[in-house]
Structure formats: C-alpha cells, structure tokens
Amino acid sequence: MNDASISASTAAAASATAIPSLVDRPAPAKVVARDVNVFYGDKQALKSVSIDIPERAVTSFIGPSGCGKSTFLRCINRMNDTIEGCRVAGSITIDGADIYDSGLDVVELRARVGMVFQKPNPFPKSIFENVAYGPRIHGLARSKSDLEEVVVTSLKKASLFEEVKDRLAEPGTGLSGGQQQRLCIARAIAVSPEVILMDEPCSALDPIATAKIEELIDELRANFTIIIVTHSMQQAARVSQRTAFFHLGILVETGDTDQIFTNPKDKRTQDYITGRFG
C-alpha cells in the first residue's frame, strides 16, 4: 500500500461521519490541559502535554504502544492516584476548574468523568445492579422507581436494553464480550457524566461488536464529551472529530481528524500514519 491510497481511504472514512456544522465551528473546550508532566517514580512518562478537548465531540488519542496516551487519559479522571509512585505535575481543568486542586473531591470528579476500560469488567452482580451501582453510591435516585428508570434509560442509550430487557436479574458476567462492554458503557453513563473516557474499548472485541460500539459512540457524542484512546488508526478516523498523536511521552500533533490523516504537519505523525513504525 502506498501513502496516497491510505490517506484517501482514511479521508473518505472521516468525511462519512463528519457532521459539517459541528466540526467546522471551533467548539468550546471542555477539558484543558497545560504543561502536564507525569512521573512513575523516577521515570518520566509524559512530557509537557498541552491540549484542548472540545465539548460534545469525540477526540481520539493515537500513537504507538507505550507512548503515554493511556497514562494521559487516566490523568483526566485521576485514576493515576490509585497507582503507587505516580506523580502528576501541570494543570488540567474541566470547565475551568482545576481537577488537581487539593480541595477537589475526587469521588465527585469521577462521577462527572466516567471511564470505560480495555477489557470489559462488569461487576459480578446482576445486569441491573451493575448499572444501578453508580446512582446508588452517589445517592442519585430517590426511590426504587427512579432507580429503575435510570437503569432502563442508560441501557437504552447504550443500545443494550432490547437484548437484555427480560434478563436484568442475571449476572453481568454471563453476557458476550461486546455486550459486556456495552454494559460497562451503560454503567458509566448511568451517573450522567459530562465526559466519558474510553481506553481502547474495542481491542478485546470482535469486529461486529466493535462496529456496534463505534455506532454507539457516534450517538453518544451528541450529549457527552468523549475521549477515546485507540491503537487503530482506522477506528480513530471513523469515530473521532479531533485527533491527538502521542509519541514517546510527547504530544506531537493535535488537529481535526481528517487534517491529521490527510495532511499531517509533523513528520513523525506522517511516519506513524503511513505505517513506518508503531
């Protein structure tokens, strides 16, 4: 395959999902990161990352393995706090509020910023209880019928309800891989977050399940800000409006998806996209 044909196909894919009006206008930045450095002990994993994430759009992080995209993703909902020896410097703000501020309640943050993981990890509870978990612990449902409504709505939004509506009491672990991941997505949106982080959500799934999830992401971006880490450039091109390319802990280039894939500004981006490495 040569450079030109790859660019052409990705460009075609990108334009198919583009909604012209939303992408052309500069969207308000929901998440703003400035000069973020992350250290694991003495090793530096991210150097000086600055980026604006637009609201109600899908932003994808691409790059070869180990380049720090997952690490950066996990900074946004402070999941890196759970890792011993991990230190984050710099500023990340959501709607203007610094999320590393000492007064900020991390529990509240994680209700506003949801996460979907690489390997589907439903709790060993029933499907209903999986989705109800978030609303329960945050005290979001005042009555049983309220809770039921939230669960059903979330499952519907995750395109899962029809498939599981008559077995809500069965364990979540009994579903197929793709269904489990959709369950995790339903679980994440049950608390009505503003931002959803997805860390390679389809890498453990087969192509048909992957297609379903990508469809779902496209629907969700009407109401949520989505950041997705993916190692598949085709997926990034299909699904996202903005793309950021990471390499060796540095944010090399950010831009509109079709621009990155058809006309990258940086040579490293060009090399990655054309398959020279990664």
Binding site: N77, M79, T82, V106, V107, E108, L109, R110, A111, G114, M115, F117, K119, N121, P122, F123, P124, K125, Y133, G134, I137, H138, C184, R187, A188, V191
Partner: peptide, 27 residues
Amino acid sequence: VPQSLRDGSYGMGATKAETIKKVVLPA
C-alpha cells in the same frame, strides 16, 4: 480479586470503603 473490578468501581467515583464493601467482598 482482579484489579480490573476495583478500577471499574473507582472509575465510577466510589470510595475505597464502598468498593470493598460492594464489589470486592461480594466477589
């Protein structure tokens, strides 16, 4: 108990005690 379950719970904004009581111990 696999760490992924705990991560899923922390990602939801649960405190450590809630994660242990509602996810880890039942598992």
